[in-house]
Amino acid sequence: MGYKAKFRVWRGEGGEGRLEDFTVEVNEGEVVLDVIHRLQATQTPDLAVRWNCKAGKCGSCSMEINGKPRLGCMTRMSTFEEDETITVTPLRTFPVIKDLVTDVSFNYQKAREVPSFTPPADVKPGEYRMQQIDVERSQEFRKCIECFMCQNVCHVIRDHEENKPNFSGPRYFIRIAELDMHPYDVADRKEPAQDEHGLGYCNITKCCTEVCPEHIKITDNAIIPMKERVVDRKYDPLVWLGSKIFKRQR
């Protein structure tokens, strides 16, 4: 059964804009992105929204729905009351290009700052031999669809724009963890994680984990293990002593 839903959609360019009210038809089984598309088709042909797969796998349609970062294509209209006003805004951490479309190039810049996979010099491609249990831990992180909702919700940069130069954000902490846990990666990633990527800024309030549409345990499986590895490297005198006595590689 269809009904008329009340929508408030942020519209504007750059940072300037306002929330505009609409009443729009909703049919059974639809998601928020469907309703946004109906708005485009019937009332606001110039409404800008980024989307692609409509299956929760491309990470394009990230937006904030009733204040929470969500994928528009995965947010069912049936989760709202029919008389509820649904507020849709662009991601709040990134600059707006137009309406619901934000400029996420901050993330691409941070991606370039993480050195790529670095195998040992004496191991050639094709010679890697790994057990499944050695790689499955970091395979979880490869589920990331780069929707950047974890980056958006992280208060370190969401509430403090000035931290952006010093903080890479949860998406890149899982990238660093993935590489650091890789059996064949030999690059030093612990000290850079703390000193260059701002791991210490994270106060593990787990919002990144809460919003991840792929249900990656970002905090428990990537950020906290990396923090512990940083403690090994920088702050734990016993580990330092052990590495000296037993000549362990750190």
Binding site: G17, P90, R92
Partner: peptide, 19 residues
């Protein structure tokens, strides 16, 4: 190069969460 491009959406409420 647009100057306004580097602006976030200006929404002057602490949160839009309704829960």
């Amino acid at each position: 190069e647009s100057a306004v491009r580097k602006q976030r959406a200006q929404i002057r409420v602490r949160t839009l969460r309704t829960d």
